[in-house]
């Protein structure tokens, strides 16, 4: 079990990395970023009203510029690498494609869904961490509405 400071640290690092990535995606594809927020999410349930482990997930959306042409992820490998997420791996998700890289214990995922629109989704998250039992309710109730960018 870790103390809650590890999850606090994960939050800080995920938000900072996500801010760099969103900026890089806009630089590479043009357009504008929105919904640049994050949240603490429960991972493994412990009972009918609480989680045992939590992780932080930062997310954002970039509506790409009119001059960008699909597939958008092709242009984003350097963006991930420049942000410290080395050797990004292309993958698939239902209805779309992904590009995933790791930096230490953080994982960044970029995805596009061609059938849905001209935008790229981004998420940066850490591993699930166990927090002290006394802190579970606080983490579960925590909100984080302030945009990271």
């Amino acid at each position: 079990m870790t103390d809650s400071s590890a999850l606090e640290g994960q939050r800080e690092r995920a938000r900072a990395a996500a801010a760099v990535l969103v900026t890089g995606v806009v630089d590479a594809l043009g357009g504008s970023a929105s919904r640049t927020t994050g949240r603490v999410e429960g991972c493994e349930s412990a009972s009918e009203d609480e989680f045992r482990t939590f992780r932080y997930t930062a997310t954002g959306r970039v509506d790409v510029g009119a001059s960008a042409s699909p597939p958008f992820l092709d242009a984003l490998v350097p963006v991930l690498e420049a942000a410290g997420f080395a050797d990004p791996i292309p993958g698939e998700r239902p209805g779309g494609n992904t590009l995933e890289g790791s930096d230490g214990d953080l994982t960044a995922t970029l995805s596009e869904l061609p059938g849905q629109g001209a935008y790229v989704l981004l998420s940066v998250e850490g591993p699930c961490l166990e927090v002290p039992e006394a802190d579970r309710r606080d983490w579960q109730r925590r909100t984080d509405p302030e945009p990271f960018l």
Partner: peptide, 16 residues
Amino acid sequence: EARRNIADRVDPVTGE
């Protein structure tokens, strides 16, 4: 708390 918990999360398809 419940309505905020849901509204704080984003749709995995739209990012909204």
